[in-house]
Computed example of a mutant assay.
Amino acid sequence: MKTYQALTAIALSALALPALAQLTPVGTWKSVDEKTGQPKSQIVIEDQGGVLQGRVQQLLRPGADPKALCVECKDALKDQPMVGLPIIQGAKKAADKDVWEGGKILDPENGKFYTLRLTPIDGGQKLEVRGSIGPFGRTQTWVRVQ
């Protein structure tokens, strides 16, 4: 019986480790429209030497044109394809907190960049994405894609 209990404990520990390893914004996320509750896009966030970068991997809205361009974007991003568009740049992990900040996030719908804060929640299964200008901003909750 003790062998069974030991094996059960080992198996449960092995299942818990991936959950702990997920307490990071790195991964693939589904953004959700706050008004409709429908998925908008799939975003991939990568760690490049301690700095997070994110790009649109796929458009998920029903009827979305996979060849759509960022017509509201400015400068080098103007008229670039939405799929592959870099929307997160420069976020770094805050000291002693599971928060990434100091970067920028692009809202492709208006072409504006906002100050960024990323906070994994629900054991890393969701991500609070806060974009702000000064004291004004909004927070979206993205869902991790398994």
Rank of each mutant, 00 (worst) to 15 (best):
88 I>P: 04
80 Q>D: 06
80 Q>V: 04
87 I>H: 00
99 V>L: 02
105 I>Q: 02
63 G>W: 11
14 A>R: 09
17 L>W: 03
93 K>G: 03
121 I>N: 09
92 K>M: 01
79 D>Y: 11
53 Q>S: 04
1 M>D: 12
3 T>F: 08
11 A>Q: 11
5 Q>S: 12
61 R>K: 12
75 D>V: 03
62 P>R: 06
34 E>H: 11
33 D>M: 08
21 A>V: 11
29 W>F: 09
54 G>P: 15
79 D>N: 15
7 L>T: 07
41 S>Q: 12
39 P>N: 14
1 M>K: 13
46 E>M: 05
98 D>N: 05
90 G>L: 00
82 M>Y: 10
35 K>H: 07
5 Q>P: 06
63 G>Q: 06
39 P>H: 13
36 T>Y: 02
119 T>Y: 04
93 K>C: 03
39 P>L: 10
121 I>D: 08
63 G>M: 06
76 A>W: 11
53 Q>W: 03
16 A>F: 11
81 P>N: 02
64 A>K: 02
63 G>H: 08
45 I>Y: 00
83 V>A: 04
71 V>W: 09
85 L>Q: 03
33 D>V: 04
13 S>F: 14
71 V>S: 15
72 E>P: 10
75 D>S: 02
114 Y>D: 02
34 E>V: 15
80 Q>C: 07
33 D>W: 08
19 A>V: 14
4 Y>Q: 10
40 K>I: 15
43 I>A: 01
121 I>R: 12
